[in-house]
């Protein structure tokens, strides 16, 4: 089985979010970039398929050269090869177009992405890739088992979960549950050394018109100070009469 894991290079979860150039660009100053958490669960599940079922695992990111350390980290975790599509990620549709091209060119059986990226939170790229290449698609995937070309997946639904049967070729939008938090791997020295000599292919982008453009960013308005109360009676009164939420 050939697996492609789509990796989004995102600011780590503790990052302070600021913008520059008249609030038109994300300020990367002092920001530490990581593998998108949802993608890391998917990558770790892919490692399981590699170790238990002999799958080969490639990772791909659509992005500028500064995303390469993130790809190297994925190689250090154990991916066999990495691909960087040499163009900045602008909108979900154009990123999906690039990934669909890579997916078809490499004839992958299973494509694992994340439910959403924690930067632009589009929650759209994996579904778009699936539709573009005519593969099956399951989103919010929390369990994935492959036997030959048959696949059993569990997806999270609002208030529960749903078990589905499907088949390869398949694209999933994954999240925690694909593996547990405790299964995530911190690259060791050996992995980091090996990653240096693993292939990292740079591919030029195909034409893919963006359909949306972010024009300006804004931060939420600062909130008023908290009202501290001493008794539960006061709290109930405020929730009822002032906030009008109960």
């Amino acid at each position: 089985m050939k697996i492609l894991v789509c990796i989004s290079h995102v600011p780590d979860t503790t990052s302070k979010i600021n913008f520059t150039d008249g609030e038109t660009k994300f300020d990367t100053n002092g920001v530490n970039f990581v593998i998108n958490p949802n993608d890391e669960f998917g990558l770790t599940r892919a490692m399981w398929f590699k170790e238990k079922q002999g799958a080969s695992v490639h990772v791909v990111t659509v992005g500028a050269p500064e995303t390469e350390p993130t790809l190297r980290k994925a190689l250090a975790i154990g991916a066999d090869e990495a691909i960087r599509v040499n163009t900045p990620a602008t909108d979900g549709y154009s990123v999906a177009k690039q990934l669909a091209h890579i997916a078809q060119e490499g004839d992958y059986d299973l494509i694992i992405g994340g439910r959403e990226s924690i930067d632009y939170n589009g929650g759209m790229v994996p579904g778009m890739v699936a539709k573009m290449i005519g593969a099956n698609f399951v989103n919010t995937c929390i369990s994935l088992e492959v036997d030959g070309t048959s696949v059993v997946v569990i997806r999270e639904i609002d208030g529960g979960k749903e078990t589905l049967n499907t088949s390869l070729p398949l694209v999933v939008g994954g999240q925690k549950g694909l593996v547990e938090e405790s299964d995530l791997r911190i690259p060791n020295m050996r992995g980091i050394m090996q990653a240096r000599s693993k292939p990292l292919h740079i591919k030029e982008p195909v034409t893919a018109g963006a359909k949306t453009v972010a024009t300006i960013f804004e931060k939420p308005a600062p909130r008023g100070a908290v009202k501290l109360v001493d008794t539960v009676d006061e709290l109930i009164d405020l929730l009822h009469n002032e906030a009008k939420v109960i």
Binding site: N121, V213, F217
Partner: peptide, 10 residues
């Protein structure tokens, strides 16, 4: 965007 840490006008 940015998991509710900001908004984008797109």
């Amino acid at each position: 965007v940015f998991t509710n840490k900001a908004f984008s006008l797109t």
